[in-house]
Write a protein that binds this DNA or RNA. Structure first.
Lengths: 144, 144
DNA sequence: CATTGACTCTATAGCAGCTACGGAGTTTTT
DNA sequence: AAAAACTCCGTAGCTGCTATAGAGTCAATG
């Protein structure tokens, strides 16, 4: 199949497929006389694999590693397990960070519940650092 | 103060300060005869404001908007409130996405609890898409 | 007073992971 | 035969920095 068909089959923009080739995730493939790329099922499966990993938010580097293991089925997969564990670790750290953030933002939002002049806006004032102590906890101006 | 001192005062790399200037977040500032940037307290506060926002994961575009309101204290701050609400929305969406991801990754991880040959690795096989149905739920090879 | 070291300047390139051009050639459809 | 749709390549853009290179400036030391 040609690149456009592959693009459809894997729901991936054509540009991205070429990008993956350049990035070394997809091998350089056969070409027609007129220099069009031609793909087979194996390549499509490989691309689907990549996309699946991307949907799990893996980096291209991580995916490269996984592909190496796929390409050498005799090797021991311990590193794959490690990678996934590490990835899970990153994700859960990020979740905690974002939950923290969410809490801070909501607290901040409380400081200006209604529209008013910017100079009195609790949010702007809250962001106008003075003490770097708590996570924006020190209330400044409030509605109540 | 010179840029290096400001950098210390706001715990921000010198390069980043210059970057913020180029990006229009910090105004072009006065210079010494020898073309060194000179900053006052106002600029330092502005930088601290920016950094505080960044720690809340706001984009530079969002921060630019907030700065506009800070710069015109007479205006109504409704848009500030909107921005924060929208930002909270983004963050909580992202949290949900990541929680989903975490669940998927953990499920995937279960499919290969011990090291073995790559060809038998439940993770690699699980990622080797076949049906795009569930969130990687279809168990393939398992340890038990 | 000369030299070293720390600082500053600008301009430019790099990171990730694409996305979007522009301009040319090819293939398919009408 | 002409038009539409596809493909090619190279390059530039996005975000928010970070890291060079090469030059100039300033403070402290020998």
């Amino acid at each position: 199949m040609k690149i456009g068909e592959l693009a459809k089959a894997a729901d991936t923009p054509v540009e991205t497929i070429r990008y993956y080739e350049r990035a070394g995730l997809l091998p350089e493939t056969a070409r027609t006389e007129s220099n069009y790329r031609i793909y087979g099922e194996a390549q499509r499966d490989r691309l689907l694999f990549i996309r699946r990993c991307r949907r799990l938010d893996m980096t291209l580097d991580e995916i490269r590693l996984l592909l190496r293991f796929k390409d050498s089925p005799d090797e021991n997969c311990a590193q794959v397990n490690e990678l996934i564990d590490a990835h899970i670790g990153h994700v859960s750290v990020r979740i905690k960070e974002l939950e923290n953030l969410e809490r801070q933002l909501k607290t901040l939002r409380q400081t200006c519940r209604e529209a008013r002049e910017s100079r009195q806006c609790g949010i702007l004032n809250g962001l106008s650092a003075s003490q770097e102590s708590g996570p924006l906890m020190g209330r400044t101006t409030t509605d109540d």
